[in-house]
Amino acid sequence: MRTAVLRGLALSTLLLGACKANEQLPAPSVTPTANILLLLKTADNPFFQEMERGVRQAVLASGRKVNLQVRSGDSESDVNGQRKALEWFYNEFGRQPGADANTAVLITPAASQRELTEQLLAFRTKGVPVVILDTRIDPAALKDSGLTYTAYFGSNNKEGGRMAAQELLRAAPSPRRVLLLGGVDGQETAAARRDGFSAEIVVKAPSAEITERTCNWRRTEARKTVEALLAAGKAFDAIFAANDEMALGALEAIEVSTSANKPKVVVGFDAIPEALAAVRSGRLTATIAQSPADMGRLAIEYVLDSGKRGSSMADEDVPLKIVTK
């Protein structure tokens, strides 16, 4: 009984306190805070960590009051995680009055078809800008769903694949067999890098046979794939991995293999710090450097600039460069 009375008193005090707090709430600020969602594929990959760094620096440099929410999926293909983050942000900020003026979504989509278009369309219906970073959504899927994004900042991955092929051919001039380690099936980035690479090899080294394996951007899968192929007696002159994590996995496999026909040339993509160290030490032949920090910076400048924000759709490729020893 005594406990019940004490509990009742405590509850009443809390309720009264809450009412008082409500009464003392300050008036809304005149300058609205910009609510920005940065939704990455995964926070584990140094590439996306670099992008986040670019976004944070641009926010600081802008001098604006920004409520930056950074979210990510569990892995590069975690569509469900991204979908939930979008739905949460929409319920929290997207549906508020005036969201079109002070809210924005920056996303590196985990899938390139219609997996996320419904959630993004909800933002666009409210006039909230949606900026796509790094990975495009398939134009046919955009058309089908009626989604129009506001801006795209990324790399020309097809061109990157072509540059990787050129560097590979420079290091191994007439390869007979080339192994291509690809990213997640169906992702635009993976497809563009593969297409760019394959097209260049077909033109410049028509006799080369390309063997393709999907390793889902993961180091462990790339390591096991290369180990299995070498152990099965397959010989390769060179390997192109569509990201550096997979390139580093391939290097681990090559180093433990006792095969006489080990590939001597491995080219990666993304220029993450560990890969750059591998290039410097001569283990990795080359990697294609993107500028994820620049992608993030351009996106923030775009959404915080009211002039650009209302203008027509922006589509900008950040330059790529080859990193060798």
Binding site: R218, R219, T220, L248, E274
Partner: peptide
């Protein structure tokens, strides 16, 4: 085997 300890792999 991997040369690196990933938190998600």
């Amino acid at each position: 085997l991997d040369g690196s300890a990933s938190t998600s792999s």
